[in-house]
């Protein structure tokens, strides 16, 4: 048992919670986006934890860089999802004469 394993196990727990949020919990947009963000958090934690296995004092910098890239990408995607959600709520039924055939993601 070493420290990285502790965090590695935690990472899997976080990832699973995120999957539950994205698929299983209440089917609300914000909740799904939260779930997706948490899934990402789990993956990032696993990457950073696995970087700590280095025998030297310095952890492996490559996973750290990957995580930084990943965080920025998930912020971008979150921003777009929230913008669409806001636009949807403002658009309301009034703007589209025909009732929507495809239910919005709830």
């Amino acid at each position: 048992m070493s420290v990285w394993m502790l965090y590695g196990a935690a990472a899997i727990g976080v990832f699973s919670a995120g999957v539950f949020g994205a698929f299983g919990a209440t089917t609300h947009v914000v909740r799904r986006v939260l779930g997706v963000n948490i899934m990402g958090g789990g993956v990032f934690l696993l990457l950073v934890a696995s970087a700590r296995r280095a025998p030297s004092a310095i952890p492996d910098p490559v996973p750290h860089a990957l995580v930084l890239t990943g965080i920025v990408i998930s912020v971008s995607a979150t921003a777009l999802a929230m913008a669409i959600a806001r636009a949807l709520s403002v658009t309301r039924e009034r703007d589209s004469p025909a009732p929507p055939r495809d239910e919005p993601p709830r």
Binding site: G8, I58, D60, V62
Partner: peptide
């Protein structure tokens, strides 16, 4: 997973 790995650090 392998318990010790330096990855690309070196």
């Amino acid at each position: 997973l392998p318990a010790r790995s330096g990855g690309l650090a070196e």
